[in-house]
Design a protein around this nucleic acid. Structure first.
Lengths: 217, 217
DNA sequence: ATATAAATTTAGGCAAATCTAAAAATTTGT
DNA sequence: ACAAATTTTTAGATTTGCCTAAATTTATAT
């Protein structure tokens, strides 16, 4: 598989709820910053190889095999991210681009040994689950902070938006995975939230709250 | 730089004594398992970019800039090899192919952090020197076992042939870097050698002796 | 329901990296 | 030194992945 093929598979997986929902070529093109016509070409090739199901004008879904491939790439991406943060001391906003390259390295033995070296991590630095060798992962029961009732108490376990900008914002405001959070009050006027995080009281916008996952305890 | 460009630069470096001696397109093609005509095309492109000096029919040498690029790639290759052996527990005959892929990952920060993580190693698992950030490395004063006088005493510090076959042979015969070796006798009939390695006495062919580097003490 | 808008595909083209076959330059052997 | 052998380059083709522009299909809005 070429890098480009792998990247298309990944895009279809992410856009189509694990590849199950049909995705438009336009959506893929936008995500990948290419043109819809280029996506059409590639999708035809992937269909040839039985990685996707494709009917003209009707969007694309991954085949069973395609899902397997996608999970393999995601596993590699997330394991490398753990490596970069835990072992090489990168911060969580720097690792995505490098992992985009590393995820294409071909060696099953390498990824198995990396997994062992990292002690079989279950989540990447952004709280996203890491599929195991067989593509299985537990999708932790987590909720967006913006959607839990007032007085809920839990632990911050992930981010929805893992853009560098958002991650840096969190760093600046000392919000990190593992922090204990209580939702104190919802401001109906602008849908912002007052929360207790650790032992501080903070006021966060709806946009922030809509991108933080917490696990209710 | 594309992977293919980087691979050509590397080949020219290795074939031309660090890029200083003119290399034929044929030699490059043979090493890279492509055709001479493909090499000609690529060499023209590299000349355009001032990575090599090239005169039709007269072979190729690296420019100063080309040498720098080559050393950067070799640094990455060898650091990744150390990582694979030291951290992921690969054996020294398995790492070359994987490092061939990893050497193309683009991130200066990554390689600096990897270097730090590995504690600034000076040699790769085959005893080859690792250039530092500025491309400087000490070319350890080592000699081929086949070329030192009888009764020389030293430490095995590297291999010339790092093919998987040779490395596996050494493993099987319990010859490893760091072993203390004394050349006991040279068999003039077939140019083989009797050596003491650790506390064993061994008889090794000239071919083996011609591919082991030792550092005389 | 149908015209208009939007999405998608097709057609044709381009650049990179490779190849084969033929032409040109260099090297070699006597 | 010169013909033959070898090496190297050129010319032209192929594949991959991408593009633009035009055609086609599907969706939307009155």
């Amino acid at each position: 598989m070429t890098h480009s093929e792998e990247n298309h598979i990944k895009a279809i997986f992410h856009l189509g709820n694990k590849g199950t929902v049909a995705v438009s070529t336009n959506a893929i093109a936008e995500l990948m910053e290419t043109k819809p016509s280029s996506v059409t070409d590639m999708v035809k090739k992937l269909a040839e190889k039985d990685l996707v199901h494709y009917k003209k004008y009707q969007g694309v879904t991954l085949s069973e095999f395609g899902v397997k491939v996608a999970l393999g790439i995601i596993r590699k991406h997330r394991l490398w991210e753990v490596f970069l943060v835990e072992k090489l001391d990168f911060s969580w906003d720097e690792v995505h681009e490098i992992a985009e390259q590393l995820e294409h390295i071909k060696s099953e033995k390498l990824i198995d040994k990396l997994d062992t070296f990292l002690d079989h991590p279950k989540f990447d630095p952004h709280g996203d689950p890491i599929p195991d060798k067989n593509g299985i992962f537990k999708t932790a029961d987590r909720k967006l902070l913006s959607e839990v009732p007032v007085n809920s108490n839990g632990i911050c376990v992930g981010v929805k938006d893992s853009s560098s900008a958002f991650l840096k914002f969190l760093d600046k405001n000392k919000i990190a995975l593992g922090d204990v959070i209580t939702v104190l009050e919802k401001e109906e006027f602008d849908n912002s939230f007052y929360i207790k995080i650790g032992d501080r009281r903070e006021h966060i916008s709806n946009q922030i709250a809509s991108n933080l996952f917490i696990k209710i305890s």
